[in-house]
């Protein structure tokens, strides 16, 4: 009996730890973007290496959780949903890390007057991922709160899209910028936007999974 509850508790802790990694990844991303926009590249690279390490740890943790859920035949009727949620949330963390890697590799030439807007864009995208994590935690513990958090994810995603559109309109309305530069900046805005989109896609899955959990 103690072994049974201990086994469950251990995986519960690992799931929480995995979700913590996603939140931590979002915070590092925001810091990284801020440093990049302020040309503090050394600190940016430091954040980048931290987030890469974090992503790897999250991957290992996810695989470990998935293996345990299957080998120990835990939560049989919800296992598919939980694995789907963990994989999709891992994909959100990957998107966060990949975007920061792209900043480091491609070194986009940012426009200083649009820095605030770009940071605002990153902040909203990460907000969506944070609410996504909250809603996943609620899925495990408190089903009644899932819906509220999913609503917040939708709102943050819409806000991200709105800011991204504004940013893109602004850069494409500047006649003195090269088209290649405009497209490059648009690509980065799109990449940040994808974080929020992925978070929203996961929440659509989550909404269905939540209905299945009601007895």
């Amino acid at each position: 009996m103690i072994e049974l509850f201990g086994k469950h508790k251990q995986i519960e802790v690992e799931i929480d730890e995995f979700l913590d990694h996603i939140v931590e990844g979002g915070l590092l991303f925001k810091k990284g973007i801020k440093f990049y926009l302020n040309h503090r590249l050394e600190e940016f690279e430091q954040r980048l290496s931290e987030i890469i390490l974090l992503e790897k740890r999250a991957d290992d943790l996810r695989r470990n959780i998935e293996t345990k859920l299957y080998t120990k035949t835990l939560i049989p009727e919800f296992r598919g949903d939980v694995l789907g949620l963990l994989e999709h949330s891992d994909a959100v963390l990957n998107q966060i890390a990949d975007t920061l890697v792209e900043f480091s590799v491609e070194n986009p030439e940012t426009l200083s007057d649009l820095n605030d807007l770009k940071y605002e864009l990153a902040k909203n995208a990460i907000k969506a991922s944070e609410f996504m994590v909250k809603s996943i935690r609620c899925y495990f513990r408190d089903l009644t709160a899932v819906r509220d958090n999913i609503k917040q994810v939708h709102f943050s995603r819409e806000e991200t899209n709105r800011i991204a559109e504004k940013y893109k309109r602004d850069i494409f309305s500047r006649p003195n910028l090269r088209l290649s530069h405009k497209m490059h900046l648009r690509y980065f805005a799109r990449s940040i936007e994808n974080i929020a989109d992925d978070a929203e896609d996961l929440c659509d899955r989550l909404a269905i999974a939540t209905i299945k959990r009601y007895i």
């Binding site: 049974l4 509850f5 508790k9 519960e12 835990l74 939980v82 959990r213």
Partner: peptide, 25 residues
């Protein structure tokens, strides 16, 4: 029993994995 379970399990806020252990027992 269904209504009782719905009332008490719905508000108990037990983690899904703990609930799994309780259900097994």
């Amino acid at each position: 029993l269904y209504y009782l379970a719905k009332k008490y399990l719905g508000s108990a806020k037990i983690h899904m994995l703990q609930m799994d252990a309780y259900t097994r027992v």
